[in-house]
């Protein structure tokens, strides 16, 4: 038992060293960064305050945002950009069938018509606040809400091929459009919770999302390059998973990696975080169905 604990403690030290995140180092560096960034941020923040009604301070300014595909190899990028080699389209086609399936009552198409027209740009605005339920919903939650309330059908299980198919089909209609989530008004409380979760240290590794994806992106973590942690490719086909998965699954995998508690699929903490991530990636083109390692 003790030996196992020692081994796991050694392994986590290795993990933290690999990140360059030993605490003293990260403390001094973040001070230096804050001071330096402060000089640059003053004009940028002033500009933001003028241009947007409710400017939020960004750890990553919009002009340094880089999609996850830029951190991937050319093989993975090639796979994503080729609609036949991209396995995500197997789910998109499945979703198209579900969209038009009226066997058990009204289909999605009965109300929304041609997805190519009606769903263009929709996924780029999600997660979004839903007035009827008073909550913020991600795309999967919205699809299930529609199924239960409007179509009078059962909710689909998160990460099931059926739900991923529909969300991939809907999301693929917005390919290339910039993410533009609204975080003002009734969504602001969820946004603040999502931001707090992002900056909060979690789990046995005591790491926050920001420590990897804001402060150390571009550096190596073992054999991988740390990305900026944007969700603009999801639902995405992860070669590691050998299947399509949602952004929530990806976030849960990160939490697993830092040995933190994983909220269950569909939990509001994850949706709040998805909202914050969508705002953080604002302007990046939607790539769903993406391909990632």
């Amino acid at each position: 038992m003790l030996r196992r604990w020692q081994r796991s403690a050694r392994r986590s030290c290795g993990f933290i060293r690999a990140l360059g995140l030993n605490q003293r180092w990260s403390q001094t560096d973040s001070n230096r960064q804050t001071r330096f960034a402060g000089l640059l941020l003053v004009p940028a923040v002033a500009l933001l305050l003028i241009t947007t009604a409710q400017a939020q301070q960004r750890a990553l300014p919009l002009d340094v945002l880089r999609s996850g595909s830029e951190f991937a190899g050319s093989d993975v990028r090639g796979m994503q950009s080729d609609d036949l080699a991209n396995p995500g389209f197997l789910w998109v086609e499945r979703g198209e069938k579900s969209w038009n399936d009226s066997k058990s009552g009204a289909s999605c198409a009965s109300c929304h018509g041609e997805a190519r027209a009606s769903m263009r740009g929709v996924a780029a605005r999600y997660p979004a606040f839903d007035a009827a339920s008073g909550t913020v919903m991600d795309l999967e939650a919205r699809i299930n809400d529609c199924r239960v309330r409007r179509q009078k059908q059962n909710a689909l299980v998160r990460e099931s091929d059926d739900l991923l198919g529909i969300s991939a089909y809907v999301a693929s209609q917005s390919r290339g459009l910039p993410l533009s989530t609204r975080i003002d008004g009734p969504a602001s409380a969820a946004f603040d919770r999502g931001r707090a979760f992002y900056n909060q240290r979690h789990g046995q590794m005591n790491l926050s999302c920001a420590q990897c994806h804001d402060q150390n992106w571009g550096k190596r973590i073992y054999a991988e390059t740390l990305s900026q942690g944007h969700g603009n490719a999801f639902p995405a086909y992860k070669l590691e998973w050998q299947t399509l998965g949602s952004l929530q699954r990806r976030i849960r995998a990160c939490l697993f990696g830092i040995r933190a508690e994983m909220p269950p699929a569909g939990a509001s903490e994850l949706i709040d975080l998805e909202l914050f991530l969508a705002w953080r990636a604002q302007g990046l083109p939607l790539e769903a169905p993406g391909v990632r390692r």
Partner: peptide, 8 residues
């Protein structure tokens, strides 16, 4: 070119 859906 053909891509087949299978869990393998």
């Amino acid at each position: 070119r053909i891509s087949i859906r299978h869990a393998m």
